[in-house]
């Protein structure tokens, strides 16, 4: 049976292997260049004590490379469309399922081996691409501290493997239910994109309760220092009673701080025409404080794990659906 799976899909496997090899060559060459560029920049900045500005002065990579990295977001979807969707649907559509199902092999074994290899291949390809991207990105991650950004979080670490498993399982299930290849492909793309967007935008921020830090308003140091690639959920100013400072409880003159419109208490109104630092100290004196809500950097792998777990569970559920549909339904 494994031989049949290989014979059926070897051309796809060759193409995917060639694409992966090409991608690996690009990543390895440019990744090494970038790593050495970052290293020498670190050495020279240490000599001149300008390393704190390195994030703004050093330009790593190129727009084309970052576009390529962003395109790896599509890898799980492509695997779902080209490997998952046709896996069962094409056999039902062309009738070859009837050929296979009347050989001396049970339908469950047939499905298990096909699905097993497809999932394994998806995990391998998704993992290989992710590993290359993660390695390539390490200087960028170290420089920019933006590991939680969607364009980075979603293409690095272990989540791409889980996305790939989910996309392939989705394709298989859509094919088993719809029994036609093209509608299965369309369904795979639609559901995959929709679910990814919903989870990344609305579910991911709440995997763990965010940490909130309040701090004294001061013009010179608007922000406390938070180590590493933390993920900022929100920031702003709270009034003396802890209420949101932007509430239009009483009309007055406002000033925008850190993107929050703060209505000045009457006592500070007179300072409006004067230096901004004085407004800050006036606000601080009247009990106004700044806050930042964020996910600390050390939660990165917990978030990767939770998101990977969610998609792995969804993939398992879809495989179960495929098994039930294939075994229960008439050929």
């Amino acid at each position: 049976m494994t031989w049949l799976v290989w014979r059926q899909h070897r051309n796809q496997a060759y193409i995917a292997a060639a694409a992966l090899a090409l991608f690996a060559v690009v990543m390895l060459i440019t990744g090494r260049q970038m790593a050495s560029q970052y290293h020498s920049a670190l050495i020279s900045c240490a000599a001149t004590h300008t390393c704190s500005d390195l994030a703004t002065t050093l330009n790593l990579g190129s727009p084309v490379l970052f576009l390529l990295i962003n395109l790896t977001l599509l890898v799980p979807c492509l695997l779902g469309v080209f490997w998952g969707g046709p896996l069962v649907a094409r056999e039902l559509e062309t009738g070859t399922a009837q050929f296979a199902w009347t050989q001396s092999i049970s339908r469950s074994r047939w499905l298990a081996i096909k699905v097993g290899w497809a999932m394994l291949a998806a995990a391998a390809w998704g993992g290989a691409v992710s590993a290359l991207v993660t390695w390539w990105s390490s200087p960028v991650n170290a420089l920019q501290h933006q590991n939680f950004r969607a364009g980075q979080f979603d293409v690095q670490g272990i989540v791409p493997v889980s996305y790939a498993l989910f996309a392939v399982a989705l394709g298989i299930a859509a094919g088993a239910v719809l029994r036609r290849t093209v509608p299965a492909l369309a369904t795979t793309i639609g559901v995959f994109v929709a679910l990814r967007v919903v989870i990344a935008s609305y579910v991911r921020p709440h995997y763990m309760t965010a940490v909130t830090k309040t701090y004294r308003l001061a013009f010179a140091h608007p922000m406390p220092s938070i180590p590493g690639s933390y993920w900022q959920v929100s920031r702003g100013i709270v009034g003396p009673g802890g209420q949101a400072a932007s509430s239009a409880a009483h009309s007055g003159v406002g000033v925008s701080i850190n993107g929050t419109l703060v209505t000045l208490p009457p006592a500070c109104n007179s300072l409006l025409s004067q230096d901004p630092p004085k407004i800050f100290s006036c606000l601080a004196a009247h009990g106004y404080r700044a806050f930042i809500t964020y996910q600390p950097a050390n939660r990165y792998w917990a978030f990767q794990g939770i998101e990977a777990g969610i998609f792995a569970l969804l993939a398992a559920a879809l495989v179960a659906v495929s098994v039930i549909v294939v075994l229960r339904r008439d050929a």
């Binding site: 009738g95 070859t96 050929f99 009347t102 092999i105 049970s106 339908r107 075994l327």
Partner: peptide, 18 residues
Amino acid sequence: PDPAFLAGIGFLAQEIPL
């Protein structure tokens, strides 16, 4: 659909799926 039963029968569908 198990091997013991399927080994005893040969089936050829109308569209000759290969």
